[in-house]
Amino acid sequence: MDIASAFSSHNLLFILEGLYITLKIAVIAIIFSFLIGVIMGTLRYMKIPGLSPVIGVIVELIRNLPLLLILFFTRFALPDIGIKLGVESSAVVGLVVFEAAMISEVVRSGLNSIDRGQIEASRSSGLTNLQTLWHIILPQGLRRMVPPMVSQFISLLKDTSLAIVISLPDLMHHAKIVIGQNYNYTIPILALVAVLYFIVNYSLSLAAKRMESKMI
């Protein structure tokens, strides 16, 4: 185990470049999967005839597929039908598709947890279904969604490491390259990667707890 050489300035900079790619892909995927997931979960909750059941089928199909399969599909199958994406775009699309389905279930469960009495009271006071959803259901539901939503975002960030199978130059990919130069670097480099993942994910969980305490 050669710690001094493993943590050379060149190797550390290379590892941090991989971390940047990981964070960039994760942030983009979190934003889009959150927006799409909220829309899908809300539409399922509203039980719109013809639309909600179709969304339900799509969500259940995606949730029961392995993320690796979706990543392979976006990278290697889409070009066969004329949709060519770069490595980073393929990773983002695959993660968004998978995580949006997961988040939609979090949203639907959060909305369903709202007491029916409040909904009936708002309707009796003259609010429409959309007004009730916007002013009564969503504000309370979003508060309850914070813990599971953040948990899903943390999973998403860790899942970016799976994109190594499509050669995404992320943190794990760069770590693999450094280790490949000298196998004595294995333990220190993997330990560094573990620390970096922990710092990012723990910071995200702390931020979520602070957000949740302010919303209560």
Rank of each mutant, 00 (worst) to 15 (best):
I137E: 01
P49C: 12
H173Y: 15
V150I: 09
I189H: 13
E17F: 10
L168R: 11
I154R: 02
L196W: 02
I177W: 06
A4H: 05
A121G: 05
F14Q: 10
I70E: 00
G82E: 07
E105D: 06
I55A: 08
L35Y: 03
V92R: 11
I83D: 03
V87S: 00
T42S: 13
L71N: 08
P147A: 11
E105S: 01
V193G: 03
H173E: 02
V96C: 08
Q181L: 02
G117C: 00
T42H: 09
R210A: 13
V96Q: 01
L133Y: 04
R108C: 08
S9D: 04
Y45G: 11
A29P: 06
N64E: 11
R123N: 12
V150H: 00
S124P: 04
G56D: 06
M145L: 15
L171W: 03
S9K: 06
L111W: 03
G41A: 06
P49I: 14
L156T: 08
I137Q: 00
M211Y: 08
L51F: 13
M172T: 15
H173L: 05
K158I: 09
E60M: 04
M149Q: 11
E105I: 07
V193T: 06
S125Q: 07
E88S: 14
P147C: 13
V195I: 15
M145G: 15
L68C: 02
I15Y: 14
R108Q: 10
R63M: 01
I70P: 07
G94E: 12
N182W: 03
I137K: 00
P49H: 13
V92W: 02
M145Q: 08
G37V: 13
L65M: 08
L192E: 01
V93K: 09
A29C: 10
S5G: 12
I137C: 01
R108M: 13
I119Y: 08
S104H: 15
P139C: 12
G86F: 10
S205F: 02
I62V: 15
Y185Q: 03
V150F: 10
G41V: 07
V195L: 15
G82L: 09
L138H: 09
S124N: 10
L162T: 12
R210M: 03
F153M: 14
L204G: 06
V106G: 10
F198A: 02
L19I: 00
K176P: 05
